[in-house]
Amino acid sequence: MPGFTDLTGLLGIALATAVLCALGLQRLCRWRYVSTSPRESLFLLPAIAGLVLLGLFLPLGDLPAGAYLRGMVGDLSITTLVLIGYAALRQMVVLPPMSASRSNGAFLVLVLAACMLYPLALGAAPFDSYRWGYGEPWFVGLLLVVALAGLTLRMPLVTLSISLAVLAWAAGWYESGNLWDYLIDPMVAGYAVFALLNSIAWLWRLGRSR
Protein backbone atom coordinates (compact mmCIF):
# COMPACT_ATOMS: atom_id res chain seq x y z
CA MET A 1 0.00 0.00 0.00
CA PRO A 2 1.51 3.36 -1.00
CA GLY A 3 2.17 5.98 1.68
CA PHE A 4 0.15 9.22 1.76
CA THR A 5 2.54 11.28 -0.38
CA ASP A 6 2.98 8.43 -2.87
CA LEU A 7 -0.79 8.21 -3.17
CA THR A 8 -1.23 11.97 -3.70
CA GLY A 9 1.62 12.01 -6.22
CA LEU A 10 0.27 9.04 -8.17
CA LEU A 11 -3.29 10.34 -8.03
CA GLY A 12 -2.21 13.77 -9.28
CA ILE A 13 -0.34 12.42 -12.28
CA ALA A 14 -3.01 9.83 -13.08
CA LEU A 15 -5.83 12.41 -12.90
CA ALA A 16 -3.92 14.89 -15.05
CA THR A 17 -3.08 12.24 -17.66
CA ALA A 18 -6.65 10.96 -17.72
CA VAL A 19 -8.17 14.43 -18.21
CA LEU A 20 -5.59 15.38 -20.85
CA CYS A 21 -6.28 12.14 -22.75
CA ALA A 22 -10.03 12.79 -22.61
CA LEU A 23 -9.61 16.41 -23.74
CA GLY A 24 -7.26 15.30 -26.52
CA LEU A 25 -9.71 12.68 -27.69
CA GLN A 26 -12.56 15.19 -27.79
CA ARG A 27 -10.42 17.63 -29.75
CA LEU A 28 -9.56 14.83 -32.17
CA CYS A 29 -13.28 14.09 -32.59
CA ARG A 30 -13.96 17.76 -33.36
CA TRP A 31 -11.11 17.74 -35.84
CA ARG A 32 -12.74 14.70 -37.47
CA TYR A 33 -16.08 16.59 -37.54
CA VAL A 34 -17.61 14.30 -34.94
CA SER A 35 -18.99 17.05 -32.77
CA THR A 36 -20.08 16.50 -29.19
CA SER A 37 -22.61 18.80 -27.61
CA PRO A 38 -21.84 20.42 -24.23
CA ARG A 39 -24.40 18.06 -22.70
CA GLU A 40 -22.63 15.02 -24.21
CA SER A 41 -19.29 16.43 -23.02
CA LEU A 42 -20.63 16.57 -19.50
CA PHE A 43 -20.84 12.77 -19.51
CA LEU A 44 -18.28 11.78 -22.15
CA LEU A 45 -15.28 13.60 -20.65
CA PRO A 46 -15.56 12.11 -17.14
CA ALA A 47 -16.26 8.69 -18.66
CA ILE A 48 -13.13 8.73 -20.86
CA ALA A 49 -11.04 10.24 -18.06
CA GLY A 50 -12.33 7.59 -15.66
CA LEU A 51 -11.35 4.79 -18.04
CA VAL A 52 -7.83 6.20 -18.52
CA LEU A 53 -7.51 6.73 -14.76
CA LEU A 54 -8.45 3.11 -14.17
CA GLY A 55 -5.90 2.03 -16.77
CA LEU A 56 -3.14 4.00 -15.05
CA PHE A 57 -3.76 2.15 -11.79
CA LEU A 58 -3.63 -1.28 -13.44
CA PRO A 59 -0.43 -3.16 -12.58
CA LEU A 60 2.28 -3.22 -15.21
CA GLY A 61 4.94 -5.56 -13.86
CA ASP A 62 5.70 -4.53 -10.28
CA LEU A 63 4.05 -1.13 -10.39
CA PRO A 64 0.85 0.58 -11.52
CA ALA A 65 1.23 1.99 -15.05
CA GLY A 66 1.08 5.56 -13.69
CA ALA A 67 4.19 4.92 -11.56
CA TYR A 68 6.35 4.72 -14.71
CA LEU A 69 5.09 8.15 -15.73
CA ARG A 70 5.73 9.42 -12.19
CA GLY A 71 9.28 8.07 -12.36
CA MET A 72 9.93 10.29 -15.34
CA VAL A 73 8.09 13.54 -14.60
CA GLY A 74 7.77 13.49 -10.80
CA ASP A 75 4.79 14.92 -8.92
CA LEU A 76 2.75 17.56 -10.75
CA SER A 77 2.42 21.03 -9.27
CA ILE A 78 -0.93 22.17 -7.87
CA THR A 79 -0.98 24.85 -10.60
CA THR A 80 -0.89 22.14 -13.30
CA LEU A 81 -3.78 20.32 -11.64
CA VAL A 82 -5.81 23.55 -11.29
CA LEU A 83 -5.27 24.46 -14.96
CA ILE A 84 -6.15 20.96 -16.17
CA GLY A 85 -9.21 20.97 -13.91
CA TYR A 86 -10.24 24.34 -15.34
CA ALA A 87 -9.78 23.09 -18.92
CA ALA A 88 -11.99 20.06 -18.16
CA LEU A 89 -14.72 22.16 -16.56
CA ARG A 90 -14.54 24.60 -19.48
CA GLN A 91 -14.98 21.73 -21.91
CA MET A 92 -18.05 20.58 -20.00
CA VAL A 93 -19.31 24.20 -20.06
CA VAL A 94 -19.50 24.27 -16.27
CA LEU A 95 -17.24 27.34 -16.16
CA PRO A 96 -17.35 30.42 -18.45
CA PRO A 97 -14.45 31.11 -20.84
CA MET A 98 -11.67 33.42 -19.69
CA SER A 99 -10.75 36.52 -21.66
CA ALA A 100 -7.53 36.32 -23.68
CA SER A 101 -5.93 39.16 -21.72
CA ARG A 102 -6.58 37.42 -18.38
CA SER A 103 -5.35 34.03 -19.53
CA ASN A 104 -2.25 35.66 -21.02
CA GLY A 105 -1.73 37.47 -17.71
CA ALA A 106 -1.84 34.14 -15.87
CA PHE A 107 0.63 32.59 -18.32
CA LEU A 108 2.92 35.60 -17.94
CA VAL A 109 3.01 35.07 -14.16
CA LEU A 110 4.02 31.44 -14.77
CA VAL A 111 6.69 32.36 -17.33
CA LEU A 112 8.18 34.96 -14.97
CA ALA A 113 8.24 32.39 -12.16
CA ALA A 114 9.92 29.85 -14.45
CA CYS A 115 12.56 32.41 -15.52
CA MET A 116 13.21 33.21 -11.86
CA LEU A 117 13.51 29.54 -10.88
CA TYR A 118 14.96 27.22 -13.50
CA PRO A 119 18.15 28.98 -14.74
CA LEU A 120 19.25 29.59 -11.13
CA ALA A 121 18.32 26.07 -10.02
CA LEU A 122 20.45 24.68 -12.86
CA GLY A 123 23.52 26.55 -11.64
CA ALA A 124 23.53 29.81 -13.62
CA ALA A 125 24.44 31.94 -10.58
CA PRO A 126 26.00 31.61 -7.10
CA PHE A 127 22.57 31.85 -5.46
CA ASP A 128 19.62 29.51 -5.83
CA SER A 129 16.04 30.81 -5.89
CA TYR A 130 14.80 27.26 -5.16
CA ARG A 131 16.14 27.81 -1.62
CA TRP A 132 13.39 30.42 -1.00
CA GLY A 133 10.87 27.59 -1.20
CA TYR A 134 12.07 26.06 2.08
CA GLY A 135 9.79 28.44 4.00
CA GLU A 136 11.48 31.82 3.45
CA PRO A 137 8.89 34.17 5.07
CA TRP A 138 9.38 37.01 2.57
CA PHE A 139 8.78 34.55 -0.30
CA VAL A 140 5.47 33.47 1.26
CA GLY A 141 4.69 37.19 1.68
CA LEU A 142 5.46 37.87 -1.99
CA LEU A 143 3.11 35.07 -3.00
CA LEU A 144 0.37 36.60 -0.84
CA VAL A 145 0.81 39.88 -2.71
CA VAL A 146 0.59 38.09 -6.09
CA ALA A 147 -2.48 36.12 -4.94
CA LEU A 148 -4.25 39.30 -3.77
CA ALA A 149 -3.23 41.07 -7.01
CA GLY A 150 -4.85 38.15 -8.87
CA LEU A 151 -8.09 38.79 -7.00
CA THR A 152 -7.98 42.53 -7.64
CA LEU A 153 -7.23 42.06 -11.35
CA ARG A 154 -10.01 39.45 -11.65
CA MET A 155 -7.59 36.60 -12.39
CA PRO A 156 -9.06 34.00 -10.02
CA LEU A 157 -7.03 31.13 -11.50
CA VAL A 158 -3.80 32.81 -10.37
CA THR A 159 -5.18 33.33 -6.85
CA LEU A 160 -6.65 29.82 -6.68
CA SER A 161 -3.43 28.14 -7.90
CA ILE A 162 -1.19 30.03 -5.47
CA SER A 163 -3.55 29.60 -2.49
CA LEU A 164 -4.05 25.87 -3.03
CA ALA A 165 -0.30 25.44 -3.58
CA VAL A 166 0.51 27.21 -0.30
CA LEU A 167 -2.16 25.20 1.53
CA ALA A 168 -0.89 21.91 0.08
CA TRP A 169 2.71 22.82 0.97
CA ALA A 170 1.71 23.71 4.56
CA ALA A 171 -0.16 20.39 4.83
CA GLY A 172 2.74 18.34 3.38
CA TRP A 173 0.57 17.07 0.51
CA TYR A 174 3.51 15.84 -1.61
CA GLU A 175 6.87 14.38 -0.57
CA SER A 176 8.59 17.67 -1.43
CA GLY A 177 9.08 20.19 1.38
CA ASN A 178 9.76 22.99 -1.09
CA LEU A 179 6.98 25.45 -1.94
CA TRP A 180 8.23 25.92 -5.51
CA ASP A 181 7.34 22.27 -6.29
CA TYR A 182 3.70 23.03 -5.47
CA LEU A 183 3.66 26.24 -7.51
CA ILE A 184 5.27 25.22 -10.78
CA ASP A 185 6.68 22.28 -12.70
CA PRO A 186 8.51 22.12 -16.04
CA MET A 187 5.40 20.86 -17.87
CA VAL A 188 3.16 23.80 -16.93
CA ALA A 189 6.08 26.23 -17.41
CA GLY A 190 6.64 24.84 -20.93
CA TYR A 191 2.93 25.10 -21.72
CA ALA A 192 2.80 28.71 -20.46
CA VAL A 193 5.76 29.67 -22.67
CA PHE A 194 4.11 27.98 -25.67
CA ALA A 195 0.70 29.63 -25.01
CA LEU A 196 2.23 33.06 -24.52
CA LEU A 197 4.32 32.80 -27.70
CA ASN A 198 1.21 31.64 -29.55
CA SER A 199 -0.69 34.73 -28.38
CA ILE A 200 2.17 37.02 -29.34
CA ALA A 201 2.33 35.41 -32.79
CA TRP A 202 -1.45 35.82 -33.20
CA LEU A 203 -1.27 39.51 -32.23
CA TRP A 204 1.65 40.02 -34.62
CA ARG A 205 -0.29 38.38 -37.47
CA LEU A 206 -3.35 40.50 -36.61
CA GLY A 207 -1.21 43.66 -36.68
CA ARG A 208 0.23 42.74 -40.07
CA SER A 209 -3.16 41.92 -41.63
CA ARG A 210 -4.39 45.40 -40.65
Binding site: P137, V140, V166, L167, W169
Partner: peptide
Amino acid sequence: ATSRRLLPLLVLTLIAFFCGFFKSFNR
Protein backbone atom coordinates in the same frame (compact mmCIF):
# COMPACT_ATOMS: atom_id res chain seq x y z
CA ALA B 1 -21.98 40.44 -7.70
CA THR B 2 -18.44 39.71 -8.91
CA SER B 3 -17.00 40.65 -5.51
CA ARG B 4 -19.49 38.31 -3.82
CA ARG B 5 -18.41 35.51 -6.18
CA LEU B 6 -14.75 36.10 -5.26
CA LEU B 7 -15.41 36.18 -1.51
CA PRO B 8 -14.96 32.39 -1.01
CA LEU B 9 -11.66 32.65 -2.89
CA LEU B 10 -10.52 35.47 -0.60
CA VAL B 11 -11.38 33.35 2.45
CA LEU B 12 -9.47 30.38 0.98
CA THR B 13 -6.48 32.66 0.31
CA LEU B 14 -6.45 33.95 3.87
CA ILE B 15 -6.69 30.43 5.35
CA ALA B 16 -3.95 29.14 3.01
CA PHE B 17 -1.54 31.93 3.86
CA PHE B 18 -2.26 31.70 7.57
CA CYS B 19 -1.13 28.03 7.36
CA GLY B 20 1.75 28.98 5.05
CA PHE B 21 3.10 31.67 7.39
CA PHE B 22 2.66 29.36 10.37
CA LYS B 23 4.86 26.73 8.68
CA SER B 24 7.31 29.37 7.49
CA PHE B 25 7.84 30.91 10.93
CA ASN B 26 8.20 27.49 12.54
CA ARG B 27 11.05 26.30 10.34
